[in-house]
Amino acid sequence: MEWLNAIVQGIMLGGLFALFATGLSLAFGVMRFVNLAHGDLAILGAFVAVSVTSALGLNPFVSLVIVVPVMLATGYALQLGAFNFTISADPLPSILVTFGLGIVIQNVLLETYSADSRGLDVGSIEIESIRITDAIAIGWIPLITLIVAVAVLGALQLMLSRTPLGRAFRAVSDDPPTARLMGINDRNLYAVAMGIAFATVAVAGVFLGIRQSFGPLDGPAQLLYAFEAVVIGGLGSVWGTLVGGLLLGVAHTVGGQFEVAYGYGSGPLVGHLVFLVVLATKPSGLLGRRAE
C-alpha cells in the first residue's frame, strides 16, 4: 500500500514537473533554443509572487494575475533584446547567455531575498486532501497542480495544432527562411514563444512555492527535472512532456521510499537514473518522433 501511495503521489508531483517542462519543450520545438536559466526563472517567478502577495495582501493563486503577465513580458523582451542574437548553428552563445543569466538571477535573488527558504501561503487548502483509502490521500494542492499542468499542456497542444499562431510556430520550426517568405517575422515569433515559455514557467514556479519551501539556489534542480521530463517523453511531443513528467514524478516518490544514509531520501537520484536509462535505451524518448 505504501508503494501504491508513492505512485499516486508521484503522479501528482509529475504534474509539477510537466508544468516546468512545458516552456523548455516549447522553446526547443519552435527555435531549437535551450534555456539554461529556465529553472532560475521559475524561482524568480516564485519570488515575484512572494513580493506581490506580501505587498498587496493577495492570495498566491490570485498573484498569478500579476506574475504571469510580468514574466510573459520579460520573456518577450529578453528574446528580442538578447536571445535572438544568439540563434545560430553554433549552440555555444545561447548556452552561455542563458547559463550566465541563470547564475546572475540566483545571485541577485540571494542579495535581494537572502538565502532563507520561503513559501507561498494559500491558506487551509494546503493541508486538505481527498481520502481515497486509509493509506492513500490526495492533497488538493498537488491535484490542482496536476490539473493545471494537463490544462496548460492541452491548451498548448490546441494552440499549436489549431490556431494561426500555432501554424506559424510549426512553419518556423520547419524552415525559418521559407517562413519569412510567407511574411512571418520569425524573430518576433520567437519572442512570442519565449513569452509563453516564461508565462508557463512562472505558473510552475508559483505552484512549486505553494507546494514546498524554496530558496534562491533551487532553480538548477528544476531545470534538470524539466529537461529530464522533456527527454524522457520525447522531443517535439507535447503529450510526451506530460508522460515524461509523470514518470519522473513517480521515480522521485518511489525512489524516496528507499532510506539511505543520514536519512536522505534518494528520490532525485532515482529520477536521474531513470532519465539515464531512458537516454541509453530510447534516446528519442517514449513518445518522441526523432532523436536530437
Binding site: R32, V34, L36, P91, I95, L223, L224, H272, A291, E292
Partner: peptide
Amino acid sequence: RLRGGYFAIGTWVIAE
C-alpha cells in the same frame, strides 16, 4: 547521445 544545449544539461545531470 545529446547535442548542443542538451549535452550541456545532460552533463549537469550526470554531475548531480
